[in-house]
Design a protein around this nucleic acid. Sequence first.
DNA 1: CCAATAAATGAATGGCATTCATTTACATCC
DNA 2: GGATGTAAATGAATGCCATTCATTTATTGG
Lengths: 227, 227
Amino acid sequence: MPAPTPASSPGPAGSVRRRVGRPTAAVLDQDGITTAALELISSKGYDGLTMAALARSLGVAPSALYNHVASKDDVLLLVEDHLAAMVDVTAFGVEPWDVAVRRWAWSYRDVFSEHTPLIPVIAVLPVANAPKTLAMYEAVTAGFRDAGFPEEKIISAIVALEAFVFGAAYDVTAPEDIFDAGNLAEQVPNFTAAVDRLALERHARPTDVAFRLGLEALITGFGALRG
Amino acid sequence: MPAPTPASSPGPAGSVRRRVGRPTAAVLDQDGITTAALELISSKGYDGLTMAALARSLGVAPSALYNHVASKDDVLLLVEDHLAAMVDVTAFGVEPWDVAVRRWAWSYRDVFSEHTPLIPVIAVLPVANAPKTLAMYEAVTAGFRDAGFPEEKIISAIVALEAFVFGAAYDVTAPEDIFDAGNLAEQVPNFTAAVDRLALERHARPTDVAFRLGLEALITGFGALRG
DNA sequence: CCAATAAATGAATGGCATTCATTTACATCC
DNA sequence: GGATGTAAATGAATGCCATTCATTTATTGG
């Protein structure tokens, strides 16, 4: 069963006339690719995101994608930029600085904890080709400046917070028993005791407790820098 | 030029008698694989670390590796555990708590900033099969406990510090101009100004400044939790 | 001495991103 | 309105990769 091609006039029965060459209207564009990639990721995960699968979901040959993106990393960058727009920066300039940072960091972590395979790509790729990501940075930077942050420390503070957020995003995806020492437990008594002790606290997800603990320390520490 | 096999008695000239089957003494073991992997990584980087290249550097067929490791991820776990032993935990129990944390976190970041491709693997894999990693956690946990940390908060604090360390390790590898907004600079004036302002400070690497800023905030914040 | 096992080989396998020659519909210019 | 150029598709290769498997054989344990 060939992929349906909207405006093709099929030939005589038995011979399917396949559309070749420039179509009436471009089937593909970066928005469509981004959307299809996101759907694929949410249904099959990042392992299912292959150029072949992406092309299939768009009813197109894999090679056709390369007319619109330079590489698979390019697709990942498109996805990343889309996600950056979902991070909540609306509190900056409206709520107090600490509230705004808290909202931003939690939503940043939540968005990317579902997309950790992007992190190695984001962390290294220049931001120039990611307009929505840049817009996020702009909002956060403005929020810090308006809160009285010394200008030469703003980027450092954001970088530090972002590092924490990315690391914490991984932590969200870790299996619950990641700290189970198994048969080596006897050799690490202090560690085992601390892990067991934490397990008794049944208030919130351990990953959320750790994130809150670290985030509050960063907010308190950075808040003291404001002029 | 075939790989030399120590105790093989070559056949007549023109026909090289290759060793097949169980050798006199096992050529491979996990230590040897780990060492070879580390050498390969340091010479060719993680892109050069393929099972084929690893086997070649050991003078062995790729399939032979699978008698000693279950998968490539298994190799990465061996490497990770080796690196964990290089992280400096010697200050715990000797120096004051804050000094020890500082030394641990800086060395942890420095070690893994050269090995960021391991991070996605570490962050998710149970610790039970990584004895040296466990030993590191044990030393850190004991240090926190002896410093008067409430036991139910120790793991959370370590997890938070580790998240920050992993994120910061990525940051070390980022290109210098990662925050260059390019032709979109006009649309993000606050961000651009802050980036430019930071560039004027020529004291230390920006990545180190950000790491110090975040780490000191975490140490101060967590230090207040001690009983 | 014999059977079991551990440890190697090399030849598949299947999946992957990416490249390339080719084709064709549309837009533009003369 | 016809020629020309170009954007956008095709599908067939390419080369790399991790992993599997049947096979072989030296050593070890009963």
